[in-house]
Amino acid sequence: MRAVRVTEFGGPEVLENVELPDPEAKAGQVLIDVDHAGINYADTHQAENTYLAPSQLPLVPGGEVVGRTGDGRRVVALLGSGGYAERAVAEQAMAFDVPDGVDDLTALSFIVQGTTAWLLLRRNAHLEPGESVVVHAAAGGVGTIAVQLAKAWGAGRVIATASSEEKRKLALELGADVAVDSRAEDMTETLREANGGNRVDIVLDMTGGPVTDQSIKALAPFGRLAFYGMASRQQPKPVQLGNLLRHSATVSGMWLPHAFTLPGQVYGKALAELFELALSGKIGAVPGGEYGLFEARKAHEALRSRATVGKLMLDPRR
């Protein structure tokens, strides 16, 4: 089968186009003929071994696919790796049936980015109707869904940040009340101005560095910042607990693989609700571009340049 492989860690240049034997499903696993593989920013970290979970070489990147099983089921599945290929193996518990009416783009948008947005707003931030919500990187895979979910769940004011006029326009079209430049020199003041001079209740942040530091300073009393990534590859400053006490603020973290282990089918509940919202027309996926399998390097270059919006996919059939 055709696949993309990494044999040394690094940037997009380490992605190699290769032919590999088909993977074999073991007990408790399922073999999937891949129709599309999702591309996530985490894949770039996986390729350079800077992800929270260490990578092992050789590596076929890719943590999500949608396709058909041998018995004809159409599923979207989470993988540890192996998605950038014509066939992939997933644990049966991590392969979810895709409802009729949900296309590949939507299924792939929800399996990681959608569930991330759901968990951040429901479990980390505990969004209450009427609260203000800041969505950093609002034109990205998680951001585009988080903006829509926040509005669907009654947020009073959704403030989007994005790096270009085009991206800010997209965020407004998705339901954000205001969109500001993510490159603002003083993000604390920028967010307060965008919220009518008031501090903000919730911040969803995957940027890191000064953006995180300044966003924490913008939190209202009992405000919550949910941290779920570090796209800038810059560590934020250590959080001073005394400062949190001073404003009764909360800073929390969320790593999606951890949610897979939670009791009560939290992950499955999130995905099922997202599918229902999509079928009812309340939220939708934003296409970010489709690449042929052997264009994976190009896709990673686009992701790292911050030039993309929405959901990116690989098509192993071309």
Rank of each mutant, 00 (worst) to 15 (best):
N49F: 04
R68I: 07
H36K: 14
A37Y: 08
I39D: 00
E86H: 13
D43C: 11
I32H: 05
P58G: 11
N40L: 14
G80A: 15
D100T: 05
M94S: 11
A53C: 02
A77S: 10
D43Q: 10
I32M: 04
G62S: 10
P61M: 11
I111Q: 01
G83D: 03
P61L: 09
Q113W: 00
G62L: 07
Y41K: 08
Q113F: 00
V102Y: 02
V112N: 03
G62T: 09
N49H: 09
E91K: 06
L57C: 03
V98I: 09
A37E: 07
P61H: 08
T106I: 00
R74E: 05
P99V: 07
P54Y: 03
R68K: 12
V76G: 08
G70I: 06
L78Y: 06
E48Y: 01
I111S: 00
V102H: 04
G70E: 13
F96H: 12
L108G: 02
V34Q: 11
A90R: 09
L52T: 13
D33P: 04
I111E: 02
A85R: 11
S81W: 04
H36R: 15
L105Y: 00
S109L: 01
D103T: 04
Y41D: 07
S109D: 01
D100W: 02
V66T: 06
A88R: 05
M94D: 11
Y51V: 06
A42I: 14
A95K: 05
V60F: 07
A53T: 15
V30L: 05
G62F: 09
L78G: 13
D97M: 00
P54E: 05
V112E: 00
G67R: 02
D71S: 14
V75H: 05
T44E: 02
L79W: 05
T106E: 00
L108F: 10
E86D: 12
S81Y: 02
M94K: 15
V75F: 06
G38Y: 02
G67T: 08
I111F: 01
R73K: 14
P54Q: 03
A53K: 14
R87H: 15
F96G: 01
A95F: 07
A37M: 11
V102S: 03
A53S: 13
A37G: 07
A107P: 03
D100M: 00
G101I: 08
G38E: 02
R68V: 10
G83E: 06
D104N: 13
V112Q: 04
E86Y: 10
T44P: 10
G38S: 04
T69W: 09
D35E: 15
A93D: 14
M94W: 14
D104T: 01
A90W: 04
G72V: 05
V66N: 02
E91Q: 13
A85T: 10
A93Q: 14
M94F: 13
A85V: 09
L105F: 01
I32A: 03
G63M: 12
D71I: 09
F96T: 06
V60E: 09
P54D: 05
S109Q: 00
G80H: 12
D97K: 02
D43N: 15
F96A: 03
F110M: 10
Q56S: 15
I111K: 02
G83T: 08
A37V: 09
